[in-house]
Simulated scan of single mutants.
Amino acid sequence: MAPLNSPDLPHSGFIQLYRRDDDAIRAELTAGLLAEQPATSPKFLYDALGSKLFEAICELPEYYPTRTEKAIFDARLHDIAKSTGRGSTLIDLGAGNCAKAAQLFPYLQPLQYVPVDISVGFLKDAVESLRQRFPQIRMTGIGMDFSSTMELPPVVRREKRLFFYPGSSIGNFSPIEAATLLGRIREACQSDGSLLIGVDMIKDKDILTAAYDDALGVTASFNLNLLLHLNTLIGTDFHVRDWRHVGCFNESASRIEMHLEARSDVTVRWPGGVRRFAEGERIHTESSYKYTRQGFLQLLERAGFAAAQTWTDERGWFLVCHARVA
């Protein structure tokens, strides 16, 4: 691999690895809509409008994860930087607008910043803005679905990789899926890498439910927008007015669930498929698993991480964890 300051490597750029496979998307969504328990992957929530709506959700008073995680970073950044060290290859998974990583730059002083996201247009705009603010940091944005692969292009430094996965996005995966994803990250870390991750903790169910069913209805709009995205992706004829948003906490599974519930009997058609939904029938659109500190550390250990350091807020609502490869 060329050295970091090689003229063969661009100082900044964007690499598009994700290519939308319309046939695969159609097959996946059709299978989900026709399943006994209809469901779609949460990744389909994030079209251009969905990404902007999620940014709005993060500003809501009920949605504590973003501000609680930020408060932990604000209070403990020196300790976190001491744990992670400086001069890393900072790989930001699900980077979005890159704001969370940007607050770390003065402390971690990464040699290279690699934001990764499937929402390509959104990420390109964010990287372009960010590299103007931090011209001294080599930046390479990557359009990639990291939920299915963690193979990074050669332009990404192999030395001292620090994977950054904030926002408790790990909760969108079941514990088995999360262990698989963490295992891929562990492998991509090489021998001297590490992981800095945010994890939402188990707490009072009323607090959890309110965070996913806010009074203004922004989360409802975010969830209902999925129907419009499906209409675009596979030609379904969903009408938003036929559905309502449902957010609830499944205590037995330790997870928040988001559903779209039919307000009355409704038939949805699309090229090659049709499904009748009875009144009250639901489409499961997202899960967000919540953890105890010990439970998550055990998950990390099974994935091949060790020597974890953790920080939390005073209420114990959220956990930030830095773990090195075992």
Score class of each variant (00 low, 15 high):
H11K: 12
Y18M: 06
R20T: 05
D21A: 00
A27C: 08
S41T: 05
K43S: 03
K52M: 13
A56M: 15
E59D: 15
P65M: 09
R76P: 06
A81T: 12
T84Y: 07
G87K: 04
A95F: 01
Q103Y: 14
F105N: 03
L111I: 09
L111P: 04
D117Y: 09
V120S: 12
E128W: 00
S129G: 14
S129T: 00
L130V: 04
R131Y: 00
Q132I: 03
R138V: 08
G141L: 06
I142P: 02
G143N: 05
S147R: 10
S148G: 02
L152Q: 03
P154K: 13
V155H: 08
I170T: 09
R184P: 06
R186L: 09
C189I: 10
S194L: 12
K205N: 11
L216C: 12
V218D: 03
N223D: 03
L224N: 13
L226I: 05
D237R: 10
R255H: 14
I256Q: 09
A262E: 05
S264A: 14
V268A: 09
P271T: 02
G272N: 07
G280P: 13
E281N: 10
H284R: 14
E286F: 13
Q294H: 11
G304V: 00
A308D: 03
Q309T: 07
W317A: 12
F318V: 14
F318L: 15
H322C: 03
A323T: 09
V325M: 13
A326E: 11
